[in-house]
Amino acid sequence: MMSRSKPLAAFLLPLFCITSFIACGKKSGELPALTGATREAVLTEPPMVPARVNEDGPQKVVVHLEVREVVKPLTNGATYTYWTFGGCVPGKFIRVTEGDEVEFHLSNPSSSKMPHSIDLHAVSGPGGGAEASFTAPGHTSVFSFRATTPGIYVYHCAAAPVPMHIANGMYGLIFVESRSNPLPPVDHEYYIMQSEIYTTGHYGDTGLQEFSFDKGLAEQPTYVVFNGSVGSTLGPTALKAKVGETVRLFVGDAGPNLASNFHIIGQIFDNVYEEGGTNVNHDVSTTEIPVGGATIVEFKIRAPGTYHIVDHAIFRAFNQGAVADIVATGPEDSTVYSHQQRYENYQ
């Protein structure tokens, strides 16, 4: 909580020191003492987000995450060999609370061809865990870190060649929620990540598509997608909400190359936690998310219908797949939005 507000920090810092001194009688810096309780982290596949855990104080949180190399649909008629954290793209969402000690178990099954690792941007330490978690097929690495700083963070594989591991789907989000200043309750929380896919084939080619190093280096993606594939979050899998409800999106940009001009057509974000940090901006239509960064946006659904989530660099949405939907149900309110009222000849 130190970084959220300086005066608050000035007040809390001595308090923490005193508390931790009393609690364990040894040096523990600014970190609050652990309660001694341990819990297994609940991880969710996109677009879902694990519920907030209400605990008395910082706990040991055990995370088990398995790397999987899987063939999954990329678009109609096309598949791709995704390398994943947990079998899904993006990888499973991890939610912890500030001060928790995370004991991370990264498993690489013997069916994998590659060694893999994980660099969590929530880690304060060289490599973000990458060296500690570098794991051959058929093995598990265990390492621990303290979730020192609240925020929404990207994690990704950092095994060489890193760009290919990320391009193939090895990324996800970890949310470190502030202990003293948790996010306000909302009706829905969802998880979305934008990324590019570089294939030797063209957009729409069918069959198993292969990774293109040349296109990746040229930063000319074949696909730009939300949650790993074209249409991942459309139709039956679109996000759902009702008129009058509040929605919070945890949005990350995995890249590997392109920042996102994140926009929801027909929505204005009430709150944007800029770059996942402590600045909260209001009344924003389009927010930029850097590669390797993430943000939290909140908005209220005021009218029913389908809302398209896009990268507003609009060729990406129109031609490369960067569209996801939110379908809102509920009563129309013509004072909010009238739909078309007249259609006339104009000369």
């Binding site: 498993s107 099954p109 013997s110 490599g127 060296e131 500690a132 978690s133 570098f134 794991t135 058929g138 093995h139 598990t140 690495s141 265990v142 390492f143 621990s144």
Partner: peptide, 11 residues
Amino acid sequence: TAVTADTSGTS
């Protein structure tokens, strides 16, 4: 599936 890494990163 269990050979552990120590915290310094050398398994």
